[in-house]
Design a protein around this nucleic acid. Structure first.
Lengths: 144, 144
DNA sequence: ATTGAAATTGATAAGCTGTCTCAAAATTAT
DNA sequence: ATAATTTTGAGACAGCTTATCAATTTCAAT
């Protein structure tokens, strides 16, 4: 279970090393839990991990998820008043169709769109590091 | 100045009429200020209108901008920890290139991308109401 | 293995953005 | 003008996230 996400663990360790940060029990715990999700809020993870470690603080979860963002493992997305942290290891899939009726999220990827994004960026002298595309609307069920 | 945005004013009046709401000095004031912007936060508008009306309350601005959203004149967008209200009359322009170095924001529009978005949505049974596309990277100046 | 400097944690206070409350004021229909 | 209803302004309040800080843990150097 702990050795399931070796690649991401290595990426985290590399980031920690580069920035004089330390690998802690909490960071390992949170990473493993995080990688099992597609996207999650800090609050949800807090409750989810309460069983595994009842003393794990909410602040630590926020700090750690933000650390994952710095390390390139996660990406924060502001949704309503909350922040959702996306699992970036499901790469190429981080565009979303979001139903404003039931909050359902469908992931998709579209190479043609990605290509056009590059084109726009180049035309404006930008080098894209990452992007975010969210389409909001109603799913077929909520439309009725 | 007051009769510059007649069309939007009419749209607002129609919405007010339909919902038993009243046209107030503040709503007119805020509408005119809002329509001069591409997008703005409630806080920014609060400071901007402080000269015109020092007693205009922040809550009123929030309420009014949300009212504009209901009326279809504005569109709320969560950006970082803040909410930006987009002027919908400048439609098609709400995609952004964001420099992570200097925080510069370049707006762009690309019809081809919009078309592909519709396609993806349709394929998944969604009806798009709005969308958000942000490309993060470095501008030419920050790359060096 | 021990030590010690530096980073991390947990608990909670504080901060920020946005909404709610409610008495006073403004609007609209009569 | 009057009355019924909505709106406003000011500040209290609430939800989410970050800052603070003493106590603990990590990790590199012994």
């Amino acid at each position: 279970m702990t050795n399931k996400h070796v690649k991401e663990m290595e990426a985290l360790k590399e980031h920690l090393g580069k920035h004089q940060l330390k690998l802690t029990r909490q960071r390992e715990l949170i990473l493993n839990a995080f990688l099992r999700q597609e996207h999650i809020t800090a609050e949800a993870m807090y409750h989810q991990l309460a069983k595994a470690d009842p003393h794990l603080g909410l602040a630590t979860i926020y700090r750690t998820l933000n650390l994952f963002c710095d390390a390139g493992l996660a990406q924060a997305r502001h949704f309503g008043s909350q922040t959702k942290y996306d699992n970036v290891s499901h790469k190429g899939h981080h565009d979303h169709l979001i139903c404003t009726g039931c909050e359902k999220i469908v992931e998709f990827e579209n190479e043609e769109i990605e290509r056009l994004q590059e084109e726009v960026a180049t035309r404006n002298g930008f080098t894209i590091k990452t992007h975010r595309l969210e389409l909001y609307g109603l799913c077929s069920r909520c439309r009725h």
